[in-house]
Design a protein around this nucleic acid. Structure first.
Lengths: 313, 313
DNA sequence: TTGTAGGCGTTATCAC
DNA sequence: GTGATAACGCCTACAA
């Protein structure tokens, strides 16, 4: 019967019956029931992607990448937004374990500990769990080096409030580089991924008695907050403060001045994360993890500290 | 047996057995299988939301709103991105009809014609289909009026290439208002929701022999492209060109100058769309449609045309 | 108050 | 090459 539809008719059913079946199915508007199939086969050909915050522009890129890769292999990806709520995160995981998905892409602060499910962690590297992440150490090194090469010594860090591993890495690496160069290592404020809150935190940094001459931001949204704070205070970027972001979100180049930032490829991240998960689900030997590149995109928000005022003044 | 777990034990099972059952379930790590339940009950308590482009920042807001509302009633929402591809749109619909969802939220150009499924259209108003959309007529009226009040007569339209109903509305209303005021009604270029393409199209507008003194953009992303084009040409906003956007995306206020735009509430849209769908699924009488407000947010990207040069020159 | 059985729509196996 | 049948796990009606 439905051998035909599942494409396993080769050499099993006569061409005539096959045609008849197809026609009948067509006319009756028959469509195989997904629930029954899932029950029988134990697979849904769907993977769940759980993210902390759909509202952040970076996720769209990642989801798009994962979705494209999934599509090619006949999988669908269901997105679950956890709205920065750990309880909800756990609840989602439990709900999804109940059957609706064959595997998980966890783009959150802390993926649930290993449970025998197929899961790949994104941007986190939990011990023993397959992961895909960017080389943020390299990324922050590129950013900080660039600033130090320009002559900056007092570099503020506009950091994410989120305790994610990727952010801890940024902080640690930055500190390392700064102390290695003999500079002050901890001028830091944290903010949510929200322009107003970021502006508030950036303001705290800019209002310090010893104002930092440059700001390294965990993310382009945060950098946007720094732009806001600088504008409120009549500070020019980059003449009075240099700013460097992270992510290279599409709007970074429309900021004024265009934002110098660390580019990472969200689409690629999603694509690779799905590929790794697919390997896992297929029982193939998957790599323990993948680390993706990051590079510096030079635009116009950085300059040497304290540019001399125009000669005329 | 599983009467307990489904919460229907009231007056059917003794408290003792109930406790025993719960404990056993706990220890065995038993969790009801979603596929089997779906097969049996015919419902999945999941709705599908299909969007044209996850990559656009507006969708995050809508999804968040829908997801929050769904969560409250024990529903999940699965997001499907269609990547602006009509074939994929149809394919997704077919795939989703196979069972995995109880209802649909269609945020696309053209939701598939009525098929007996529970579906609510978002930002489109197909005949006979339940919908939720913004009052874009009012929104564009607010924008155009504002520009005309400022004294603009030659207003360019930086429009979306997408043929969505919401965009056709903007165009039609704008034209109406312009011809009613006796102005030239069609200075228009279209672009994809992408800063570079938008900059290209905006450039076409700005390079016209009779340069428009103001630009009305279908969307804040497009407005960002206008900023880029103006910058390339050394044109000042708003002194040389006024710009007004649509959506009030979070980054609009960090643009320089902060963007005057039409604010619409994506979260509310998602929330209401889900509520309407829930009513539909429950068989309750649902309203034929809902129209949500839009308002003008005055910032600094608009001014009277051709501001006189500073007296000193 | 508790136990049992049937069926939801598939797929896969096995006998014809 | 084809048709029958069992089983996936849950829910619910009905019998004990």
């Amino acid at each position: 019967m439905s051998l035909v539809l599942s494409g396993k008719s080769a050499g099993r059913v006569s061409a005539r019956t096959e045609g008849a079946v197809r026609r009948a199915a067509q006319e009756l508007g028959y469509r195989p029931n997904a629930a029954a199939r899932a029950l029988r086969t134990g697979a849904t050909r769907t993977v769940g992607m759980v993210v902390t915050d759909v509202t952040h522009p970076f996720f769209g890129l990642v989801l798009r990448g994962a979705q494209l890769a999934a599509w090619r292999t006949g999988y669908a990806v269901a997105l679950v937004d956890v709205a920065n709520d750990p309880d909800r995160e756990l609840a989602s995981f439990e709900a999804l374990r109940a059957g609706p998905v064959d595997g998980f892409l966890f783009f959150t602060l802390e993926p649930p500990a290993h449970t025998g499910e197929h899961v790949v962690a994104i941007e986190v590297e939990p011990p023993g769990m397959t992961f895909v992440r960017f080389d943020v150490d390299r990324g922050t090194e590129l950013a900080i080096r660039h600033l130090m090469d320009l002559g900056h010594e007092r570099i503020g860090h506009l950091a994410s409030v989120l305790e994610g591993e990727t952010f801890q890495r940024r902080r640690a690496r930055m500190r390392e580089l700064l102390v290695a160069a003999g500079h002050d290592g901890e001028i830091c404020e944290t903010a949510a991924f929200d322009y107003d809150d970021a502006a508030r935190a950036a303001g705290l940094l800019l209002d310090r008695p010893q104002r930092p001459t440059a700001l390294f931001c965990d993310d382009d949204v945060l950098a946007g907050g720094a732009y806001l704070a600088a504008r409120e205070r009549g500070l020019r970027i980059p003449a009075d403060v240099s700013v460097v972001g992270f992510d290279d979100l599409p709007f970074a180049k429309v900021f004024d001045p265009p934002l110098t930032t660390i580019a990472i490829d969200g689409g690629q991240l999603g694509e690779i994360a799905f590929a790794v998960l697919a390997a896992l689900m297929a029982g193939e030997p998957a790599p323990p993890g993948r680390i993706l590149g990051a590079e510096l995109v030079l635009r116009e928000s950085t300059a040497p500290p304290y540019l001399p005022a125009p000669a005329a003044l």
